[in-house]
Design a protein around this nucleic acid. Structure first.
Lengths: 338, 338
DNA sequence: CTGAAAGCGCTTACAG
DNA sequence: CTGAAAGCGCTTACAG
């Protein structure tokens, strides 16, 4: 493990110059710079991040705090963030806070606060005011993905509008009896996402003079299985069966498609189904949906942090709202007799 | 941000004593120790990991290198590892090496080698001999999950035996015409897993005096969609249709179940289907499978590294082979007329 | 443009 | 059991 001294020796300069030549901070003549770089390359020198961090106070490392990893949305956000971080020369350390408050506190105290990270991305996790406070006190920028954080910049699609768009698609096809599969309290997570989506659904109905029928709402846990069960309830009774179902996530929507099949109903012949996400399985099932782009959300979160961490870099800091888009596939159509 | 000096001051001892009291290295009287701890707590002191790492040469951080994140197996391994690492007071930094060789080299040089990590877990990634070499040269233990690494301890289920077990289950039900959906070269990853599973399948057939029929093999890419397409080919022709299909992964097996349905075939009435994994969706689809436990594999990888990193701790270092288990659900049954 | 030197915040032989 | 001091490997004012 060659150190900076050996590079300095070989290049015939001081360690200060080596540091400057390699980091790009401060002026170094071109000839010196190339001599230093050659020496560093020859020795296979790579700076010690600890020493560098200790001296500068910056770690070039971002903490990502997340409640799940094995779900499409979350792993996609992390992938996007990781990719973008890599290109900025940053590392990503992952804190999977699925557990209890205890585990959570310990993560905060022993990890985030050990000066390991320069900033934090909190995905669908509501940090307490004191958690946010201590991070901000330490001058660690935070950005949230997937929900509002008190006093923190947050990236999130507009769930009300997204749900409204999905519902309007169904309405525009002529549906008037539209069921909704939304979240139960367990999956309210910290973010009222299920509530917001239900609000958007009801708003769309309302705007078309259709009262929201509580009997057409079914709770589920955002999983395929949960969607299946909820859909079975919703579609089981031929009398009350809606002609279309809007599920608050694609996984639940796919569960709905499978439930319809098992009930002998054809999709979209007997019932139209739409979800939200554009999950990796959506295309396979021909699911109409409103796409959101979690990897992009992860990337955007990183950009925002980079802007705060490097105020110099003059990125326009585009703060346009997050993209979403209606994708019509084969699971939605006009109701049979409208 | 209180430093160690302030704690020392408040506790009326030297910084050396604070360090020892808090880390547990070296002897400190009980009374002093509690005084120090009280002071640290009062000030909200938490050691700077950079300073500590620089002084000790250990980072308490493990690098996990992985080709995908948004797949069940990989995210489960990471979850298991993360959980276990947390309990050992370690951080996990994630390197998602999906990309090209260039990206890969840059990760190796600029990240892993910056002394950021004490050890590396490589998941389903074949490191080059020189990559392994440089890690080992730096005294960084490596453990592989999911495939053999040259000269490195590796955790992996015995794919041949697992595939054999799955196939034998079908054989024991009386099937004689058994199709196989396995990997194509693209997903050979670095680990010959598809090949090994095919070998196990053929071995089971051979042991029962059944020659492997190349016409009953179909390639796919380990996704649900890929499995669906392969199964459609395999099951489409009533003449040559096997009575059972062994898919090398649950996702492909689920694709097979869906393909069978779309072909008007009942599962298991017309065709039995078995996979490998016990994927989160397996139960929902009633899929018989050979379960493997990726989270456990992640945890085991961590244990092995801890043993190497802390030779003192006398864990029996249980090196029993990785668990797998046949789980029979409703997708397999005796062939209709046997 | 370059260097000498202090300092980042700990840990750990070395003494006692 | 405890402390003084060196050292981990960089970076960056401060001078020149």
């Amino acid at each position: 493990m060659p150190g900076i001294n050996e590079v300095a020796l070989l290049a015939g300069v001081s360690t200060a110059t080596v540091s400057r030549a390699l980091s790009g901070n401060g002026h170094v003549s071109d000839t010196t710079k190339s001599r230093v770089k050659a020496a560093a390359f020859e020795l296979g020198y790579v700076v010690s991040s600890n020493a560098s961090s200790l001296a500068t106070g910056r770690t070039k490392n971002i903490g990502v705090v997340i409640p799940f990893l094995n779900r499409w949305f979350f792993s996609s956000v992390v992938e996007g963030a990781e990719q973008s971080l890599l290109s900025h020369g940053y590392d990503l350390t992952l804190y999977n806070l699925s557990g209890s408050g205890d585990e959570r506190r310990s993560v905060f105290e022993h990890f985030l606060l050990r000066k390991r990270v320069d900033a934090v991305i909190a995905v669908s996790l509501e940090l307490t005011a004191s958690e946010v406070g201590s991070l901000l006190d330490m001058n660690k920028p935070i950005v949230g993905v997937g929900g509002p954080l008190p006093g923190v910049q947050t990236l999130s699609i507009d769930d009300v509008r997204v749900a409204r768009l999905a519902t309007e698609h169904l309405l525009s096809l002529g549906h008037r009896s539209i069921g909704h599969i939304g979240g139960n309290d367990d999956v309210e997570l910290d973010f009222h996402l299920p509530t917001n989506r239900r609000v958007g659904y009801e708003a769309a109905l309302g705007a078309n003079g259709i009262p929201a029928d509580p009997a057409l709402f079914a709770e589920a846990d955002f999983t395929l299985q949960g969607g299946y069960r909820a859909a079975t309830r919703l579609l089981g009774n031929p009398r009350t069966r809606p002609t279309a179902v809007f599920a608050a996530s694609d996984e639940m929507a796919i569960g709905t498609i499978l439930a319809a099949r098992d009930l002998g109903l054809s999709v979209p012949g007997d019932v139209s189904v739409i979800g939200i996400d554009d999950h990796e399985l959506a295309e396979f099932f021909g699911l109409s949906t409103v796409a959101q782009y979690p990897a992009e959300q992860g990337r955007r979160a990183v950009e925002i942090l980079m802007d705060q961490l490097h105020p110099a870099r003059r990125t326009p800091a585009e703060n346009f709202p997050l993209r979403f888009e209606l994708i019509v596939r084969s699971s939605t159509a006009a109701p049979r007799r409208s």
